[in-house]
């Protein structure tokens, strides 16, 4: 990797964030709100991509990490009256604990067994949210009160229900996750993850503890997804069991496949595209699941590398 490409890579990523910030001032109200939501979900997709795209581990249970953040932040705020910052931190901590435990267990398996085990753990998590319906109100969920989603620094108040505040916070979280992913991918650890994806046995015989590296990837991925979940709870004020269901384990897979696995910006493109595809389709039909299903099949049949994966293959090999 040359110095020139390093400058190009950072230039591109900074430009993307700058465009997102600028959009705050020009987007019409509806798309402004949609994009804020897409950015938070794109963070979820980026967390998924780190594990699936780079380390090559296909999980079918990432909803539990997103939901760990969602409930980890939402429950103490709702029931214990915690502040926003404490709630966000507790959401990420919940993601850390859940992903560490799941990683330690699930990484004893590989391939298809890994997919099924992660799916089962996620199902357990989902059922647990239903079982404790007294506190979570299950599928119906909790609406976080507006006054709780406000934070006061000295004289200025930060109100998360305000559209501009919400959008800019979503962009900040997105930028943080994007540069964190970029840093991981370009680090020694990132190179080892890609090597594990390509040939785990060979990587082990180069002296790497592949289990420890994979565990680190699961935890990093889990914490990023939990951060997305916690932000979702705080910014949009809703915490419900739907986000822990199987569907939310499949969606990040779809977003990442579409945008391009193992590309830093692919998750954003995939999430954005799918969100609008479903949005537009729902103008004509309520059959959004049909759109998701057909997209998944078309992707594996004809477009394995996704948008940015194809761009990288044909035109821009330097894309991280």
């Amino acid at each position: 990797m040359t110095e020139g490409s390093t400058a190009r890579i950072y230039g591109l990523h900074i430009a993307v964030v700058a465009v997102l910030v600028a959009l705050n001032f020009v987007l019409p109200e509806y798309h402004h709100a949609v994009l804020a939501r897409v950015l938070v979900l794109a963070v979820f997709a980026m967390g998924y991509n780190l594990l699936f795209g780079y380390a090559g581990l296909l999980s079918l249970g990432h909803a539990m990490f997103f939901a760990a953040g969602l409930y980890g932040a939402g429950l103490p705020l709702y029931h214990l009256g915690w502040g926003i910052a404490a709630a966000f931190a507790s959401g990420m901590a919940a993601g850390f604990v859940v992903s560490a435990v799941v990683g330690l267990l699930a990484l004893r398996t590989t391939g298809v067994a890994f997919m099924i085990v992660t799916m089962m753990f996620a199902q357990v998590f989902y059922l647990v949210t239903l079982y404790f319906g007294e506190w979570t109100r299950g599928d119906e969920g909790l609406v976080l009160p507006q006054q709780a989603r406000r934070i006061v620094f000295g004289g200025t108040a930060l109100d998360l229900t305000d559209p501009t505040t919400r959008y800019l916070l979503a962009v900040s979280l997105f930028a943080a996750a994007l540069f964190a992913t970029l840093a991981v991918v370009r680090s020694r650890h990132g190179r080892v993850l890609v090597a594990i994806r390509e040939n785990e046995e060979r990587t082990r015989m180069l002296g790497y503890d592949t289990f420890a590296n994979k565990l680190a990837a699961v935890v990093t991925s889990g914490v990023i997804c939990a951060a997305a979940g916690a932000a979702y709870a705080l910014l949009f004020g809703y915490v419900g069991a739907t986000f822990a269901s199987v569907q939310y384990s499949i969606l990040p897979l779809l977003w990442v496949l579409l945008g391009g696995a193992a590309t830093t910006l692919g998750p954003l493109i995939g999430t954005l595209f799918m969100y609008y595809a479903v949005d537009i389709a729902s103008g004509y039909t309520s059959a959004y699941m049909l759109v998701v299903g057909v997209m998944l099949i078309l992707l594996v049949l004809f477009f394995r590398r996704g948008v940015l994966g194809t761009v990288r293959e044909r035109w821009a090999r330097w894309l991280p």
Binding site: I250, L253, M289, L290, V292, G293, L296, I297, L299, V300
Partner: peptide
């Protein structure tokens, strides 16, 4: 992935 697609359809 493909059979998940089938599931949704």
């Amino acid at each position: 992935v493909a059979t998940i697609g089938l599931l949704y359809i």
